[in-house]
């Protein structure tokens, strides 16, 4: 479904990602894990077409994701949730939700969309009183769940989430895990990042361990937790948790 071909990314003098090749299959959930500044978020952004790699290409169904003119078609199929929960600061929550809907689903009925928005927000336990508020006046946890709600409203084929449980309080955390589980059951493809044990054990089909800009391990979660590789087992002991 998504293929990384010889992906490298350099920022100033530093090599963040170094010649990465990988193929993401449909209907599977991947978790990219690794230490601090290992390049997890950068790899996810490149895979989602948000930043171009310094070298190499990302193909979505055999087509280069950076091809001009394909942005809307590709991003209609890929939902992206940011680590911190990002919303456009000078728009209300409702306008934020309406923005991608207006651009990516231009033929949809407005009233129908409003109903879907409210339904989706309640699924993520977001009170509808937040709809009129600006992002700066709502808690970070709610901002992130609104990001999830937007991604789900667009009904993507692939969902990319940067550190799914980061910044979430317990009720929102449970709602997010439930929705991600449902998305996985419905046959969606997910690419997640982070070091959450729960996410890796309960949702992941394949763990990708990133170290010094390279993929050092890629296999099933069971093998990831029982690996005899000293560096990997040390990483699991020290970094993986909830």
């Amino acid at each position: 479904m998504l293929t990384l071909k010889n992906i490298s990314f350099r920022h100033k003098e530093q090599t963040v990602l170094d010649s990465i090749n990988y193929h993401f299959e449909p209907n599977k959930t991947y978790t990219i894990t690794g230490g601090l500044s290992s390049g997890k978020s950068t790899l996810l952004k490149i895979t989602g077409g948000l930043i171009p790699p310094t070298e190499g290409i990302v193909c979505f169904r055999e087509r280069d994701i950076q091809t001009k003119g394909l942005e809307r078609e590709i991003h209609r199929k890929i939902g992206y949730v940011f680590q911190e929960g990002v919303l456009i600061s000078n728009l209300s929550v409702e306008e934020n939700i309406g923005l991608p809907v207006k651009y990516l689903l231009p033929n949809s009925n407005r009233d129908e969309q409003r109903i879907r928005v409210k339904e989706m927000l309640s699924r993520f336990r977001v009170d509808s009183s937040y709809l009129d508020k600006r992002p700066c006046s709502i808690p970070a946890s709610i901002r992130k769940t609104v990001n999830f709600a937007i991604a789900f409203i667009l009904q993507p084929e692939v969902l990319m989430v940067d550190d799914p449980l980061f910044n979430l309080n317990k009720p929102e955390r449970e709602a997010v895990i439930r929705e991600l589980t449902n998305f996985k059951r419905s046959g969606g493809t997910m690419i997640l990042t982070g070091n959450s044990e729960r996410i890796i054990k309960d949702l992941t089909d394949e763990v990708i361990y990133l170290n010094e800009g390279k993929i050092q391990y890629s296999d099933k979660p069971e093998l990831f937790f029982t690996s005899t590789d000293s560096e990997l087992s040390q990483f699991v002991t020290e970094e993986i948790g909830d």
Binding site: E71, R72, I74, H75, F82, V86, L87, P100, Y103
Partner: peptide, 13 residues
């Protein structure tokens, strides 16, 4: 604050 990235994630230039 990654708002430009957010727009790009929607396919909005």
């Amino acid at each position: 604050s990654h708002e430009i990235d957010l727009l790009q994630s929607y396919g909005i230039s």
